[in-house]
Design a protein around this nucleic acid. Structure first.
Lengths: 101, 101
DNA sequence: CGTGTAAGGAATTCTGACACG
DNA sequence: CGTGTAAGGAATTCTGACACG
């Protein structure tokens, strides 16, 4: 589930380089609850490769005029759907397991 | 051949956090030709996940008392072997291809 | 709402050097 | 040879705020 892509190790300057987004925007999307970087002991933000992909998706949506709040809703829906699907699968596996007992 | 693990995006402070090596050591191993970080436009070093693995290997060797020069030789030998092997494989593939022509 | 920018401080990184062993 | 450390400067990052639309 968690791979190297989810390790939070990239500082905001590099994220800026990679995405082309201003640091202001990157911090703002965090403020609006769209991205969740880790922090070093002294507060420097650390992002993962997945975060960078996410930021680029956000940038695309923003270009289409989608507001941060809606983007957030979409992201949450996507997450909920995935969780629901995973739970269904788990349920099916358990059912199979119980039948064979 | 090159994956996400080879993207040079991690600053030296984070590398220090992840490996436990002092920044002095990390820079010294570069000076000795063991690691090759990229640089940002203004000179800040950037390392990859592969570099971090390599640094941990180096750290182990150093604990065993192996000198940086020998470590470098070992690394070069390993690289040469891999290149040789790859060339053999390519040669075999070409041979097969030519037979069928 | 989403972004830019100037502000001031704190933490980071860099290089070249001296020290010790 | 391999590392630590103090030195000084340059670049980075952070937060809170004001501006504009």
């Amino acid at each position: 589930m968690t791979s190297i892509k989810d390790k939070k190790v990239i500082t905001i300057g590099i994220v800026h380089e990679m995405t082309g987004l201003s640091e202001r925007k990157i911090r703002y999307y965090e403020e609006r609850g769209l991205v969740f970087p880790d922090r070093t002991p002294r507060g420097t933000r650390k992002y993962s490769f997945s975060d960078i992909e996410l930021l680029m998706e956000i940038a695309n949506k923003r270009e289409e005029g989608v507001q941060t709040y809606e983007i957030k809703q979409d992201l949450n829906n996507k997450k909920k759907k995935e969780e629901y699907r995973d739970e269904m699968i788990r349920g099916q596996l358990n059912a199979q397991f119980n039948i064979r007992k």
